[in-house]
Structures are given as C-alpha cells and as structure tokens.
Design a protein around this nucleic acid. Structure first.
Lengths: 290, 290
DNA sequence: GAATATATCTGACTAAAGTCAGATAATGCT
DNA sequence: AGCATTATCTGACTTTAGTCAGATATATTC
C-alpha cells in the first residue's frame, strides 16, 4: 500500500481513468478513435503518410482505409509527395481544420478542467512537468536552434531567474557579459535546446570569440528534468558542435553557488584555470582541450 | 508551448504512451485485454459479478462471455452468492492465481522500471502522489477505522514526522498526551482515515473524555493532498461522528506553527478558549458547540 | 400469492481494429 | 535496362468489443 511500487501503480490507475475520459469525449464527435487519431496527427503537422503510420503504429492497410474514410468525410486531401511519387502527403481541408479545432477544444478543456479543480495549480504543473520528463527521457531531442527563438528565450529567462534565486546577491543580466546572439550562431558558435515533446527543458550556448577559444555559456536544465543526465548530454553536444566548427579549445566560467555544475565539469575532462575575464558573477574558471 | 494547458497536454501524451506500453505487455500473455481486466479485478478481491461489471463498465452480455472464456481456460470458478441466488461470485482457481501473479509481475516491473530509470526517486514519487490525489479527488473515501490499523498508523507516523519538522523544538510523542486507542473507538470516540484508492492521505481522531466534551486530535492531510479541501471534509466527518455519539461539545488544541489549521478552525465555527490542558506542545485552544 | 423488479445468461447482431497476401507504381542500384 | 526495394493500396479475412432483445431464475413488494 505504501511501498514505492504501489504508489506508482496508484498513479497509473489514476491517470488511466483520466486518459480514458478524454478518449470518450473524442468518441462523442461520432468518429472511431482510429480516424480521430489520424486526423489529429495531420492537424499537428504530420503530413507524410508513412510518418503518421509509424507514429500511430498502424498497419499499412488499416492506415490506408482510415485515410480513405477521412477523405470521404471531406476532412482531408492527399497528394503525391513532391520528391518521391510513391509517398503521399495528407493535409486538412477547411472542414478538416474546423473538425481538428473541435478536437483541440476538447483536449484543451479537459486540461483546463483538471487545472481548475485544483487550488495548487503551480505545484500540480511542476509535478506534471517532472513526470512527463521522466517518462519521455528517451525521447528528449537536442536541437540546434537560434538563440533568439521562443524556445531559447524561454530557457534563458528560466536560467536567469534561477541564478537570481541561487546567488546571494541576486543576478542582473545587464551587469553580466551577456553574449551576443550572433556569437552563438553558426559559423561563430551554436545554441542547443533540449526539447521534451513541445517543452524546452534545457539549453547550452557555444559562444565564438576572437581569442583562439570558444566559451560554453548558459548551461541550464529545468528543475523538472534533473537527474536524467541531461546536463552531460548537452555538454557532449556542445563539444561536438565545437569540433564541427574546428574549435580546439573551450573555456567556461561558473559560480561555486552552483556545485552540481562544477561537479559535472570536473568529471568530464575540464580543468580549473585562473580567472580569464572580469565578469562580476563567476568565481570558478575551467578549460578543456578537444 | 509553455502555457499551463500545453504543459498538461504534454503530461497527458507522456502518460498515455506509458499506459499503452503496459497494455501491450498485458496482451503479451495471449489473452484479450477485456478478459485480462476481469481476471485482474477478481485477483484484486472483487468477487461479485455485478460489482466487477460496474467497475469495468461492461455490458452484462459481454461480462458473461468474458467470465465464460476465463472459466474455459480454467482460471476462474463461479458460484451462486450465498445470500442472493440471483447473483454470482467468481474466484480464482490455482491456475488463475498463477496467471494473476504473472500480470502482477508485469505491472510491478513496469513500475520498478520507471523508478529505476530515474535518479530522483523520492521527488518522482511525491509528484505521482500529488497528481494521483488531484485526479481522484472526487473518489476520496472517508472511512471510520481502528486507530491501530495499518492505515491509521501510517497517517499518525507521517503526522508526528511533520510536527517534528515544523516545530522549532521538534516533536516527541512520548512527551505529548498521546490519546489511548480505545478513546478513539466507538462508543467512546472515533478515528477517520481518508483513503485515495489504496493510499491513506489524511486522518482525524475524535477522542472521548469523561469531562463532558470530546476532543479532536491528530488532524492530518498528506502534503500530496493539500488544496483539495480534505481537512474540512475530515472535520465535518468528525463532527458528524460526534453528533451520532450524542456529544454536544468539542475541544481541540493546536500550535501557531500550523497556521493553516488555525485558519480552518476559525472559519468553521470554532472559537478560541483558554488553555484547558498541560500538554507542552499546543499554544492555541478551541471549542465548538454542536 | 401475484405482480414487479433484479441478476445473469444466451443468441443474434454490428462496429472497430487489426492481419496478411498480393497488386501497382515509383525509385534505387548495378 | 533489368532487378530488387519501397510506399501505398485493395481484397479477404479474423478478433475484439460492444449492443440489444429476450429467456430464466430468484427476490421483493403489496
């Protein structure tokens, strides 16, 4: 009753019935679940028939028939793929878009209902983020992105907020040497965002300089995704990006108020060096030769 | 992407695929899910055919056929109910018990696998408890139980541990006036445990005295179940129990280090009175006339 | 004791999901 | 050019789930 496994199983039972309720509301639109799932996959931007089939785990015969039934309803259209005439791409018609929007409304109002019933919204959301990250840890994708993208800006805002909480004196970006976005774009550098499904949960920047080395900046992992080895994966990716840019020497600065970061650097081949800049926040400096 | 509704939906997607994986592993035992669910319901102690049908939401014809197929496999036996010969009760045979145990192993190892892949076990479990309580808030049952039962003892142990954390001077049960279990049993008093599925998530004791009043003791709500209005429900139940025992006056003591408790009492008809005992821990005293 | 209600079962269905063996057409490889 | 491979489709299935109208036996109510 109280052991960890029972607690996980209680959680499973609770969410199974919540998930079942959403399926029931989908059925309320008068279409079998299989067809509804295909329609929603297309609505969410999956156009390639083979991709949808893989994503939903469907047999090709079944997939074909579901597409036909959605076509008969006038909700989708299919065309041959422009690069490969064997493949087909599906898209929503006007009616399909309206129908997809109706499913979206159902999903959204289920989510809103769940939040509205609960007085501790933020606590509940944090718990959901944590669990979603843990369950999908094998599907976390590391993507090179523009440091000005919404995803990157979200990560940076969270990163600054966390420094503000953890540094005794707080943190003010304008006092720090905020890296220029163009230094973290190819060919000078890179910016990598870890995405779990649609949520950015971590980032790292590789900032090119004119001093014969590049710097690692803004390494951040969302609290809900800690303990999954994501920091190390991000650093590995950043080093890989540096190698691909022909960079042979990396440096970074950090603060002893972030002990888990220092620990990570020390165990992955970085060595401590003397201060190499005059930024007021860092008190620890590292270097790694690739 | 970052708004609350998207976060809930990301959680739903993550959990849906984890749940789907368990269903797939159940199918691996070569039996349709419907039959597997009935077998598991019986294994978990639901013997009455009608009860299983309600629990699983099955049509009576379908239910009957699933029972027949499990009987044909030699996994269950059915008998007429001893009090009502229209009803039937199902029970596992030896082979059925082994098969049920195999399903239990699948569920347990899925749960263990989920925990093992994560380094922050306790954080993850706390998040799961919180979500399970929030999702099943409408199904929280308040049961009168023996204060010596496992469920009650679990609640009390958690309650003492929390007092230890929240009182500056810590908390030692042996210094407090620990109520005698028989004073919290009918006909002297009562003890109520809030159960969410199999997990005890709150309690309250009604302790009979010989001084013309009864005392409310050990009001506790699990951290994972706060914000659901459970404290108030427990208190309402305790008052109801007091009325049914013919008790007209209630008293309680509490500590100002537990402000949410004091707040609850003040908004539900309790009025502050002078100290009425010499327990070293409380510093606030209340009374309510029923 | 007769009428009504309840619990389960059986037979006869339908719908949905899934499987599998080709058919067809386009592409990739040598 | 010829052959193997790939993506999709079609036809002919099976299995699973679910529905519904009685049939049967037992309980409850007046």
């Amino acid at each position: 009753m109280l052991d960890p496994v029972s607690r996980v199983r209680r959680f499973n039972r609770a969410v199974t019935s919540a998930v079942g309720a959403l399926d029931t509301s989908f059925l309320g639109r008068g279409r079998p679940l299989g067809a509804a799932r295909v329609l929603n996959a297309i609505g969410h931007g999956r156009s390639d028939v083979g991709e949808i089939r893989d994503y939903l785990g469907l047999d090709s015969g079944l997939m074909s028939r579901l597409l036909r039934s959605l076509e008969d309803e006038g909700l989708i259209e299919t065309q041959v793929h422009e690069d490969d005439a064997r493949r087909r791409v599906a898209s929503l018609t006007g009616a399909g878009k309206r129908e997809f929007a109706a499913y979206e409304d159902l999903s959204n109002s289920q989510a809103e209902g769940l939040l509205a019933r609960n007085s501790q919204r933020e606590v509940l959301l944090a718990a959901m983020d944590l669990i979603a990250s843990a369950l999908t840890r094998d599907r976390i994708a590391l993507n090179e992105m523009d440091p000005r993208s919404d995803e990157a800006r979200h990560c940076l805002a969270e990163y600054y907020a966390e420094l503000g909480r953890r540094f005794k004196q707080g943190f003010d970006v304008s006092l720090s040497r905020d890296p220029d976005a163009k230094d973290m774009r190819r060919p000078r550098g890179s910016f990598i965002v870890a995405m779990s499904d649609t949520l950015p949960i971590g980032c790292v920047g590789l900032k090119g300089t004119d001093h014969g080395y590049a710097e690692i900046k803004r390494l951040w992992v969302a609290p809900s995704a800690r303990g999954l080895g994501l920091g190390r994966r991000l650093m590995d990716n950043a080093e890989e990006a540096a190698r691909s840019l022909g960079i042979a020497l990396l440096r970074l600065d950090t603060n002893s108020a972030l002990p888990e970061a220092g620990q990570l650097y020390r165990t992955t081949g970085w060595r401590e060096i003397p201060r190499f800049n005059d930024d007021p926040y860092p008190d620890l400096f590292f270097e790694k030769r690739l």
